[in-house]
Simulated assay, not measured.
Amino acid sequence: MNPSRILLLPGWQNSGPDHWQSRWERLHGDERVEQHDWHWPRRGDWMARLDEVLLQDDRPALLVAHSLGCQLVASWAEHSRHTARVQGALLVAPPDTERDDAPPQLHNWRPIRRGRLPFASIAVISSDDPYGAAERSAQMAADWGSRVVMAGPRGHLNAESGLGDWPEGRALLHGLKDN
Rank of each mutant, 00 (worst) to 15 (best):
A77F: 05
A48F: 00
L68I: 07
E25V: 00
V33C: 04
I122R: 10
L157N: 09
D51F: 00
G145K: 01
W46R: 06
E34K: 01
V148H: 12
Q56Y: 00
S22M: 09
G164F: 15
E98M: 13
L50W: 05
Q71S: 10
R116E: 06
G145N: 11
H156K: 14
R136I: 08
D45L: 07
W24C: 12
R114Q: 07
D96P: 00
V73S: 11
P104Y: 07
R114T: 08
M150D: 13
Y131M: 12
D143M: 07
E78Y: 00
D30K: 02
V149C: 12
G115W: 01
S161M: 05
A120V: 07
R113H: 02
Q105H: 10
N108D: 15
A74N: 08
H36G: 01
L90F: 12
N158P: 09
W109H: 04
A123K: 09
R110N: 13
V148K: 08
A77M: 07
E98Q: 11
W40M: 09
L91N: 15
A102H: 07
A120I: 03
A48R: 01
D165N: 15
S67A: 14
A151C: 14
G145F: 03
R147G: 02
I125M: 08
M47N: 08
S161A: 10
S75F: 07
V148C: 14
R26E: 04
L163W: 09
G164D: 03
G155M: 03
S121L: 06
G145V: 03
